[in-house]
Amino acid sequence: MAIKKFMYLNRRSSFGTVYAIESLEVVLVAAAFDQDVSLAFIDDGVYQIIEGQNTNGIGMKNFSKTFHALGDYEINKLYVSAESLEERGLSADDLMPLVYEDEDDNWVEKSSVKVVSNAEISKIMSKQDVCFSF
């Protein structure tokens, strides 16, 4: 069966609602299906992968660490809106250093996070077969 392109559109931060963690649960399951997977982080979604999240004070699970596992499942296209970062006073340096090992390039460790313009996200989105929103 032909491989389809799946995009996961994340526009909300991590803990105020359940959407972020349950979206990540779908992404982890999707890894088993050998499809082409991209994640887009737009608007407050960029806060899902910010470095230094600590949930000790709110009694909720800190699932942000799970993003580090995505590279092992060959999920390595995490597109982050440059405009959304800038609007929020953030830059690429504020994000978690998420990486994968590139099997086509001698297993060199590379960044999974790609900060791109909304125009580039638009182009990537146009190529998708399915877009999941949460």
Binding site: M1, V26, V29, F33, F132, S133
Partner: peptide
């Protein structure tokens, strides 16, 4: 399971959220 959602995306011509 959640795999049924992914499978729906694979098997269907369209998926609407």
């Amino acid at each position: 399971g959640l795999g049924q959602l992914i499978e729906a995306g694979i098997q269907s011509d369209r998926l609407v959220v």
